[in-house]
Nucleic acid binder design. Structure first.
Lengths: 146, 146
DNA sequence: TACAATCTCGACCAGATTAGTCGTGAATCC
DNA sequence: GGATTCACGACTAATCTGGTCGAGATTGTA
């Protein structure tokens, strides 16, 4: 498994924030409820996202979390590397890409795959994910009214 | 990290067997020495490869391990799925691809990436890896003689 | 038949990671 | 002052990783 729930949950949380952008801070409890995430675990993920500058948080009544940038400027790649660390498929590929040295046997295979994956994830933004989610809602509504 | 050392070591072992195909059984100790793997750990990997029909093993003096098929017919995909289980990047993708049900939020992204990776790995065989290794040896020798 | 070489298989283990929970404290608003 | 909300670190249980070890089965050879 390339990703743990950290990446998954974290992206879901950012989608939620993006969807409520411009409405003031969004509370942790609301994110957790809407996205079905354990709130106290979400806390850790938000902390990481804050440290890396994806969100800003304010305390006290009416406080909560907000994106620091428009969702069009937040790539899936950046978010996942923030929450998961390197996405390299194999240790030796990660080493090599951090200026390390030896590539292991089949790493030419992995390097290609890795580069391609990063390229793709670098082109997808949180805004894309929100758009996709909205489409699905639309579809659900359409089904409903027929 | 998508892969653990299991996949890595297992592939290395199969490359070794492919390189010595037609010379009779290859001993675990020799594979371990040549490929720099812990022998008793390699034991487990060979057991798994045997259960899945990639290799055949014989005991007693002169015994060892051999490929059951020509290396051109063994894909990297098959080997890795044998040793690592599903290569799906995310749990929900694995579920969906085993006839499961719900795909999670961003899974359209992952499904595409996953399909592409499987296609690629399905086209690479152990024979390709051996060829690649031989080339590198050639290159090393060439450097030497200059 | 004895013995040595090999694989076979399961038990065991230490350390890391994952996926959390919980509690205390700090900031903020009323 | 009290309620609300985030901040942060300690703690935990379960699982995975990357092994080691030992007793036993099988086979070739002298």
């Amino acid at each position: 498994m390339l990703l743990s729930t950290k990446g998954d949950y974290g992206v879901r949380a950012l989608i939620d924030l993006a969807k409520h952008a411009g409405e003031g801070p969004v509370q942790r409890a609301d994110i957790a409820r809407r996205r079905q995430l354990p709130e106290s675990y979400l806390d850790h993920l938000l902390a990481q996202l804050r440290r890396d500058g994806f969100i800003r948080s304010t305390r006290g009544p009416g406080g909560g979390h907000e994106l620091t940038r428009p969702p069009e400027q937040i790539t899936l790649l950046a978010v996942l590397e923030c929450l998961e660390g390197s996405l390299a498929p194999l240790g030796c590929v990660a080493d090599a890409n951090r200026g390390g040295e030896s590539l292991c046997g089949q790493s030419w295979v992995w390097q290609e795959l890795y580069d391609d994956m990063r390229r793709r994830l670098g082109r997808i933004t949180i805004a894309d994910l929100v758009a996709h989610e909205r489409e699905h809602e639309q579809a659900a509504v359409a089904n409903y009214t027929i």
